[in-house]
Design a protein around this nucleic acid. Structure first.
Lengths: 145, 145
DNA sequence: CTTACTGCCGTACTAAAGTACGGAGTCAAT
DNA sequence: ATTGACTCCGTACTTTAGTACGGCAGTAAG
């Protein structure tokens, strides 16, 4: 009773979640998706659960998790260990906040530089470039990765 | 009168700016650094200007410019075209702000999720994981790349 | 029956920004 | 003069997240 008409083939699954077919195959190779049921013909067909899983992956990526982190999350999902997931997420939140700080600093610097660029009408040297060269004095190299 | 004692060799330059020797060579291959003076022996030695240039690159990277963008910046530097540099920077500022927005959204979501994780003491399902699965409903796939 | 469309598969390729390696050559000091 | 550290050079490898390619098989329509 598995009328193949509306079977969820790889192509349909891919279209459904908005990814490339190759991406599905890639996830499978990497173990993010289990090998789905495969009736005699050899054509895999997927379940809505598979679609959900891929969507999960994509959602987590949108939240900035790497595939490696997502792999953990999925493992946790299998066991539903809330606290472990929360810990992972907390760690990730820390990362996100650090990146946020960096970006804010960058934004301020760039905006500032651009403002100066606009102002100095008669100056010969570009404040942006000068600032980048000057920046070297204010940073300590060797501490950062 | 180039007493080799304190000549800026590749190793010293690298240590000075806090990068790997191979990175210097890499920059050279990619045209970010000109081939430096090379007295008979074959050992390059660099000038403080080279160090400044590498530091420029690293500073710009800290501001989130890619090497490709930095290449432009450096070309502009050679001609000191302030307005072109400003335009490039403005464009980049736009990028930075977009990334900032994304990150802020991510931060809010994660923080929210974590808060819920802490609250629900007796719940079986993890809000984080559930939310990631649920997230699929709120996003439109197919519009983004 | 032929053409077209999918699906399946392994393999190879992409981009970015380096890192690592192995065999020479060179330099300063012991 | 020989050691040990450093340089030079080209080539190959790394990571992340996929994409692309080319050949073959099964199904559906004309």
């Amino acid at each position: 009773m598995d009328h193949r008409e509306n079977a969820l083939t790889i192509g349909r699954l891919a279209a459904m979640v908005g990814v490339n077919v190759e991406t599905i195959r890639f996830y499978q190779r990497k173990g993010f998706l289990r090998e789905p049921l495969r009736p005699p013909g050899g054509v895999r067909h997927y379940t809505p659960a598979d679609a959900a899983r891929v969507k999960f992956i994509k959602s987590a990526q949108r939240l900035g998790f790497s595939l490696d982190e997502i792999r953990h999350l999925l493992r946790l999902d299998e066991g539903m260990q809330c606290d472990a997931a929360a810990q992972l997420a907390a760690q990730h939140l820390g990362d996100v906040r650090r990146r946020l700080q960096d970006l804010r600093r960058i934004e301020a610097t760039l905006a500032n530089l651009l403002e100066q660029c606009g102002q100095g009408g008669g100056k010969v040297t570009c404040p942006l470039i000068v600032a980048l060269y000057a920046d070297e004095m204010k940073k300590d190299y060797g501490s950062g990765p």
